[in-house]
Amino acid sequence: MPLPQLHVSRHDRTTGALLTLSGEIDLATVPRVYAALAACLRDGVHGIDVDLTAVTFCDVSGLHAFLTASWLGADAGTVLRLRHAPPAMARVIEMTGSGFLLDEEHAVRSVSPRVPTVVCRAVTAPTRGSRGR
Rank of each mutant, 00 (worst) to 15 (best):
L18W: 10
T20W: 00
T20L: 02
L21F: 15
S22M: 07
S22P: 04
E24M: 06
I25W: 06
L27F: 14
V30L: 04
V30W: 00
R32T: 12
R32Y: 07
V33E: 12
Y34I: 05
Y34V: 11
A35Q: 15
A36K: 05
A38F: 02
A38G: 08
A38T: 13
A39H: 12
C40P: 07
R42Y: 05
D43N: 12
V45T: 15
I48D: 08
D49Y: 03
V50N: 02
V50S: 03
D51V: 13
L52Y: 10
V55Y: 06
V55N: 10
T56R: 09
F57A: 07
D59H: 05
S61V: 07
G62N: 09
G62Q: 09
H64E: 11
F66K: 03
L67H: 07
L67C: 14
T68Y: 03
W71H: 14
W71E: 15
L72D: 15
G73W: 02
G73P: 07
A74H: 12
A76W: 05
T78Q: 04
L80M: 05
P86W: 02
P86V: 05
I93G: 06
M95V: 15
T96M: 15
T96I: 10
G97L: 03
G97P: 03
S98K: 00
F100Y: 14
L101C: 03
L102Q: 08
L102M: 10
D103Y: 01
D103L: 04
D103A: 12
E104L: 04
E104T: 12
E104D: 14
A107C: 10
A107T: 09
V108R: 06
P113T: 03
P113D: 06
P113F: 00
R114S: 07
R114E: 11
T117W: 00
V118D: 00
V118R: 01
V118G: 00
R121E: 10
V123E: 08
A125C: 07
A125V: 15
P126R: 15
R131W: 01
